[in-house]
Each structure stands twice: as structure tokens, then as C-alpha cells.
């Protein structure tokens, strides 16, 4: 089944919260080799002015891919994962992600473009932190483009 172009422009309801845990930040940081103390040592993070351990620059992918699953795993969207190549990724950070954050995400399918037998699908995750006053605070924007091969490619 080909990519369903009708999904372009779609916006999904806000996700359930992803709660950022200290051990997850340590685990992720160690996995990518980010050894800076603010990812691992609470005293170092607080000494640097952060309320808790700090996420490395690509950690937001963990949060984003959960939101993207709403689209990618929808059978009607026509995204066949055996035909998908990750084309590009961008993180724009509005503030540092720290342990204890409760992150909620709104997923947008920004565009679906046909190019030489490939469908280029660009999604955007707007990630925000829950706050005491109820108005989520923008934290990060994650933009991802997938290249999906057509049936004859």
C-alpha cells in the first residue's frame, strides 16, 4: 500500500506525559558516550545551575518517537517500515530537558512529498513540559524526515 498523502497537514491530540527519569538519562547518555557530568552527577548538574540531571542534545528522540508512532503505526497511513530510510533529523531546544520533566507532545505531519519514486514524509513533534499553572512550557521541537520507497523501487 502506498503512502497516504491525505495525512499531510494532520495534527494529533497531545500525548500522555513522558516522565524523564534520572536513570534513563544516565543510561541514554552512557549509550551515546556523553560523559559530561551534568548527565550523570546530580551535584554537578545543580552546581551548573540546573534543577536536576540534564538530557544530552538527542535525548528528545526518545520522546518524539513515541509520538511519531501514532502516525507510523497507523495502518491507514501506509508507512511500510521495511521500505523506510531515516533521511534527516533536527532538534531545536527551547530549554534544557531535565530529570523530573513531564513532557507532553503534539505531533504534526508537516508534509508528504513525492520525489523520484520516494515519498518524503516530514513530521514535527512540539514537546512541552507540564507546569504547575497548567500552561505547558515549550521545551523542544523535533523534526524528522523519512524516505519511503515506492512499490516498484
Amino acid at each position: 500500500m502506498p503512502i497516504n498523502a491525505d495525512y499531510a497537514g494532520r495534527t494529533y491530540p497531545v500525548t500522555d506525559a513522558y516522565v524523564v527519569g534520572r536513570e534513563k538519562l544516565r543510561e541514554f547518555s552512557s549509550a551515546v558516550g556523553s560523559l559530561h557530568p551534568v548527565h550523570h552527577d546530580l551535584v554537578a548538574a545543580r552546581g551548573a545551575g540546573y534543577p536536576d540531571l540534564v538530557a544530552p542534545p538527542t535525548f528528545a528522540v526518545v520522546v518524539a518517537q513515541r509520538a511519531e508512532a501514532q502516525y507510523i503505526q497507523d495502518p491507514d497511513a501506509g508507512v511500510d517500515f521495511s521500505r523506510v530510510v531515516h533521511a534527516d533529523e533536527r532538534f531545536t531546544h527551547h530549554r534544557a530537558i531535565v530529570a523530573g520533566d513531564e513532557l507532553v507532545t503534539v505531533l504534526h505531519v508537516d508534509s508528504i512529498v513525492e520525489r523520484r519514486g520516494l515519498s518524503m514524509v516530514t513530521t514535527r513533534c512540539e514537546i512541552a513540559a507540564r507546569t504547575a499553572d497548567g500552561e505547558p512550557q515549550p521545551v523542544a521541537t523535533v523534526t524528522s524526515t523519512l524516505a519511503v520507497r515506492g512499490d516498484d523501487a
Partner: peptide, 9 residues
């Protein structure tokens, strides 16, 4: 690390 405000590839 939080000084990296934008990162793309």
C-alpha cells in the same frame, strides 16, 4: 551540554 540549542543532520 544544554548550550547546544539546535542540532541537525
Amino acid at each position: 551540554p544544554a548550550a547546544v540549542v539546535d542540532y541537525q543532520t
